[in-house]
Design a protein around this nucleic acid. Structure first.
Lengths: 178, 178
DNA sequence: TGATGCATGTAATCCGTTACATGATTCA
DNA sequence: TGAATCATGTAACGGATTACATGCATCA
């Protein structure tokens, strides 16, 4: 799945500017399983408009660049439906944190602590964000499911982390890391 | 974190060929939070050898290309220690499946079922793999933690999925998908 | 007989990130 | 005064995937 389809998906829930799409990706329900930067969103939107999958409407603003509000077209909806009508690819999960934990013996206890604390605060952030989404929206079945799924996964991670934190630090080898 | 560091990390647990490293990434504990293909592993290994971070030893074989066994050097261990002595980047999770669930209304009920079944079998695979790792190795503290973490996360996902599956399918809009 | 596993490697290509460029407004 | 928010966009660069090339052995 690429940024094109992602933009189409977000626009299927209502019109938005590139800037708002980015915010949605960072703060909305999408945030915990998708990523995209301006450098990919803006070109994707231009391309989509060129193909008639979305329309653009410029709104003048003083001081700032014109706001470009994008809206999905029927052709866009059809294209979106086609794009998601495939058996989904396997989930991909990348974690530097877990890699580090696997290589504990190369880390100093201070680094261990820093890494664990960082991970914990990241997870707490995630959890807060998910719960916020659930409150702020009147969610449809899909959104509710995704929020439940996300909450369950993040909570489970957090529980293990809190549970094993002390043990992990106790085991940290003080002589490590060259 | 890049393929270089990943290779160094795997080689820190014992010597291996490029082919074995790939297998380790696919089947070992690494598999649920890291990815890499031959196209990136082989060049990385060549580069690492050029810099003296690993040594190579060629083993002749009949029929097949010579097996190149790589082993990490002291310099390599130092480099690995340096590479992982940073506050870890945020975990990244990509899921086409969750994206699809969020856009339910564009999917046919058949696609919904296929997607859910696929996700379930993927998760069951993951769980089996993690449990296998735990048995096959005499794991050190780090490996045990990673296995616990992975098991908790995947189990939680699986539980939600099983729990909500029926509801998700019941809600599937029969007229959807263009 | 045809797929799968073993075994290494290169080149084209893609997709995306990072950094840069611009600039007003608002909040601390 | 300096950071953050709003707002769009381009260009360089990087990093990895995919496909290709080669070829034997084994298993079904």
């Amino acid at each position: 799945m690429n940024v094109r389809t992602l933009c189409l998906g977000i626009l299927s829930t209502g019109e938005a500017t590139g800037y708002e799409i980015k915010k949605d990706i960072e703060e909305g329900l999408f945030s915990h399983f998708i990523d995209a930067s301006f450098g990919s969103i803006y070109p994707a939107l231009t391309q989509l408009a060129g193909e008639g999958l979305v329309t653009v409407r410029a709104e003048e603003q003083s001081g700032k660049p014109d706001k470009k509000v994008y809206a999905i077209t029927e052709k866009g909806r059809a294209s979106l439906a086609r794009a998601i009508s495939v058996v989904p690819g396997r989930d991909k999960y990348k974690s530097e944190f877990l890699f580090q934990m696997l290589l504990q013996q190369y880390m100093t206890p201070e680094m261990m602590r820093a890494a664990i604390d960082k991970q914990q605060s990241d997870l707490e952030d995630d959890l807060a964000r998910i719960r916020e989404c659930r409150c702020s929206e009147q969610p449809h079945a899909g959104a509710r499911f995704v929020a439940d799924y996300g909450e369950a996964v993040v909570s489970a991670a957090l529980a293990v982390l809190k549970d094993k934190k002390a043990e992990l630090l106790r085991n940290a080898t003080p002589q490590a890391a060259e």
